[in-house]
Computed example of a mutant assay.
Amino acid sequence: MGMFGKSDNVEQEMQKVENEAISSIIDKSMSVTGEISFKGKARIDGEINGNIEGEHLVLSETGKVNGDITVSSFNCYGKLEGNVTAKILTARKNCSIIGKLTAGSLTVEPGATIDGEIKAATADAKGSPVQNTKPAPSTPDKKT
């Protein structure tokens, strides 16, 4: 196992994601407001105001997201204001992320800007990130 929990398995998965064809693109001339959900690999060149949920997401240099992202892998080259939950997260040179990051594997290239909280996640049986949360305290029912 390598530094910061990068195993050979993660390296293989990252390579597989890199080689996968992009199935959806939000062009740089587009601005979308609302929730986005997708399968496969998507690239955002434009602006999104809303939460995103899917498999493999690439936020390009011209891409901007204002919302939370929940994906298997996130490759960030652009600007994000929101929280990220991902199995694999890569913050590329010149990207800007403001928010809480929860990732099973995190790579930050020199020149990336991150302003927020970084949380290492534990993996469940399927390998997806799971946050350690405490159950809400229970309150006794009042009888009248």
Rank of each mutant, 00 (worst) to 15 (best):
G78K: 12
G5Q: 06
N75M: 10
N132H: 07
K87W: 02
T139R: 08
E117G: 07
S24C: 03
P129D: 14
V108W: 04
S138K: 14
D27W: 01
V58E: 15
I36H: 03
F74Q: 02
T85V: 14
V71A: 12
Q12Y: 08
Q131E: 15
S37K: 13
T33G: 00
H56T: 10
V58D: 15
G111K: 02
T113V: 07
I88H: 12
G63A: 09
K119I: 14
E35V: 01
S7A: 05
T102Q: 14
S29Y: 09
T122K: 15
K143H: 10
V108L: 09
T107I: 14
S105H: 07
Q131F: 01
H56F: 06
K119W: 01
K16Y: 08
A112S: 14
S23V: 11
R92W: 05
V32D: 05
I52M: 08
F4P: 07
S24Y: 10
T102H: 09
L101Q: 05
T90Q: 10
T113L: 09
E53L: 03
R43T: 08
I26C: 09
E117D: 11
T139E: 15
K143C: 02
S72Y: 09
E18M: 14
P129I: 14
A42E: 02
G63P: 15
K134N: 07
K6L: 08
T107D: 03
K64C: 01
D8Q: 08
E11A: 11
G111W: 00
L89C: 12
A125F: 09
K119F: 01
K119V: 14
S138E: 09
E13T: 05
L57A: 06
H56N: 13
S105I: 00
G40F: 03
T70I: 11
S23K: 07
A42N: 01
A125C: 03
N132G: 12
L106T: 13
G5P: 09
N19I: 02
D68P: 00
S29A: 09
S31H: 10
K126L: 04
G50H: 03
P110T: 08
T33N: 12
A123M: 15
D45H: 12
N49I: 08
A136Q: 13
N132Y: 03
D141Y: 02
S23Y: 02
E53G: 06
A136K: 15
N51D: 15
D27R: 15
K79P: 00
K142D: 06
S7W: 01
K134L: 12
M30T: 14
N94V: 00
G63S: 11
K134P: 01
I88G: 02
K126R: 05
T122G: 09
Y77T: 00
N66L: 00
A123S: 14
E55G: 01
T113Q: 13
M30W: 06
E117Q: 13
V65D: 13
E18R: 15
A103E: 03
S138V: 11
R43K: 06
S72W: 08
L57T: 05
A112N: 04
N132L: 12
E20Q: 14
P140M: 06
D27G: 10
I44M: 08
S72P: 00
P110W: 04
Q12P: 00
V58G: 00
S24T: 12
R43V: 11
M3I: 11
E13I: 06
G5F: 05
K143R: 11
M1I: 08
D124V: 05
G5S: 10
T144F: 04
K41H: 06
A91M: 15
G104F: 03
N51S: 12
